[in-house]
């Protein structure tokens, strides 16, 4: 089994958190895991990318090679498109659709979404709306985490446990919203099959 995932978004959206959650869930399942990210600039609002490689064999390259990702996970539609070269032929896209328009020349959102829909394997999710419905607008990244998780060959329920543990200092309501957000993400995937070799 081998699953290569590239995650993208805008600084402050929680891309690295999603990458870490999925990495921990995979590690808890006993897989070899390599997760890489570029961070360091504290300022919010720049493009962010993370890599996650899961395998039952030892993993070589610390990054997913371009053209090899089974799954491209986006928290922002333009950032998803920016990383499209990482996606393998037939690979799947899971992306949130709400734009972060903090740049002057942001293209019309309909064009961005249309470009994404051109990929037959793309799943577009209104993660913001689902997060609000789950009880916290800030849980948009957890909706996407829940969706991405259900496309990986990992044990159901693992992610929930990890989020619970991480959220030890949260209020009961925050924890509940987080769990709901994960579930909403999972539901948004429908019956799509897991992606991996």
């Amino acid at each position: 089994m081998k699953a290569d995932v590239v995650l993208a978004g805008v600084g402050g959206q929680g891309v690295l958190t999603v990458a870490r959650l999925l990495a921990e869930a995979a590690a808890a399942d006993g897989f070899h895991v390599v997760q890489g990210e570029l961070h360091g600039m504290s300022q919010r609002g720049g493009a962010v990318q993370a890599h996650l490689r899961i395998s039952d064999q030892p993993i070589e390259s610390p990054q997913v090679p371009r053209g090899r990702a089974h799954l491209l996970v986006g928290l922002e539609p333009v950032e998803t498109l920016r990383n499209i070269a990482w996606l393998a032929p037939g690979g799947r896209i899971v992306t949130a659709i709400r734009p972060v328009e903090n740049v002057p020349d942001y293209p019309p959102i309909e064009q961005v979404l249309a470009a994404l829909r051109r990929f037959p394997e793309a799943i577009l999710i209104d993660a913001h709306e689902l997060a609000v419905a789950a009880g916290s607008a800030r849980a948009e990244n957890l909706v996407i985490a829940g969706a991405a998780f259900s496309l990986l060959p990992l044990t159901r329920g693992k992610l929930r446990g990890i989020v619970r543990r991480r959220g030890e200092r949260w209020t009961e309501a925050e924890r509940e919203a987080a769990i709901q957000a994960l579930a909403a993400g999972r539901a948004a995937i429908g019956g799509a099959a897991a992606v991996h070799d």
Binding site: Q43, G45, G46, Q111
Partner: peptide, 14 residues
């Protein structure tokens, strides 16, 4: 793959 036909704006940190 390419994001055909769309000019993606740069998004430097700010």
């Amino acid at each position: 793959h390419e994001a055909a036909g769309l000019q993606l704006p740069a998004r430097p940190p700010r």
